[in-house]
């Protein structure tokens, strides 16, 4: 890899006596869309929680541009996160949700923050929703607003947890287009946790695949290449939706 933004070295995650994944080592290239794949229960979301610093690993290290996930510069987050449901604060309007990190970290006056919020919402196609409450939005709109909030502080890196889960096919494709557009136009790096194969093949050129039984990474590389060439039955069945994928 030419320019790794994100490094994970010998990471073991879990809680108490339970190990979810052990010895995970991988790098994420700057400007890429990196997918974390695996069947249900393999620890994708747990790994994501560790990568963004919500949980402490049992062992190993995670660095973003040489810093630990909880070390901001100066004190501000190094990355943005979009949670599965968008995780917008229900008591605030969509605009106020996007403004929240800017109010905390940018030092800008309210009129300038208002300008940035409007621009970010326009970028994700929600310019008309600034004054709406999250409860008035559809699932896809909540996720778009979640991306706008995650991008508010201009991080180089965005984590997306199951971006297409629960969306209709058109909204899912639109969200994929948005991710690709932001990646190409702004050079943002994305780490996407998903098991939506259509989305994976469309947006991602590099991935790792986790396995529940061996508690380790069982494949890494371009998902299309893995689908076509992998000889590992677990990888083959996952990418080709054969029954064995359910068993594993």
């Amino acid at each position: 890899m030419s320019d790794p933004l994100f490094k994970v070295v010998d990471l073991t995650i879990g809680w108490d006596e339970t190990v979810v994944q052990k010895g995970a080592t991988f790098e994420i290239e700057r400007g890429s869309i990196f997918a974390i794949l695996g069947s249900s229960g393999c620890g994708k979301s747990t790994l994501l929680r560790h990568l963004v610093g919500l949980e402490t690993p049992l062992s190993g290290s995670i660095t973003i541009d040489g810093l630990a996930p909880d070390q901001g510069v100066p004190g501000r987050p190094l990355f943005g996160v979009m949670f599965q449901s968008g995780a917008l604060l229900g008591s605030l309007t969509v605009g106020e949700n996007v403004a929240l990190p800017l109010q905390a970290w940018s030092g800008l006056p309210p009129d300038a923050i208002g300008g940035i919020v409007a621009a970010k919402l326009r970028l994700v196609g929600l310019e008309h929703a600034e004054g709406q409450m999250p409860s008035e939005l559809s699932g896809g709109m909540c996720k778009r607003a979640g991306i706008a909030r995650a991008m508010a502080l201009e991080p180089d890196l965005l984590f997306l947890d199951e971006p297409s889960a629960g969306l209709d096919p058109v909204s899912a494709v639109e969200l994929d287009e948005l991710i690709l557009n932001l990646n190409e136009q702004l050079g943002l790096t994305f780490v996407v946790v998903t098991h939506d194969l259509e989305s994976i093949f469309k947006i991602s050129k590099s991935c790792i695949m986790l396995d529940r039984e061996s508690k380790s990474i069982i494949a890494r590389g371009d998902p299309r290449v893995l689908r076509d060439t992998s000889t590992d039955s677990r990888v083959h069945s996952f990418f080709n939706r054969t029954p064995q994928a359910v068993k594993s």
Partner: peptide, 10 residues
Amino acid sequence: DGGAMALLAC
């Protein structure tokens, strides 16, 4: 970056 551009556009 996007944030600075948003300010100029505003």
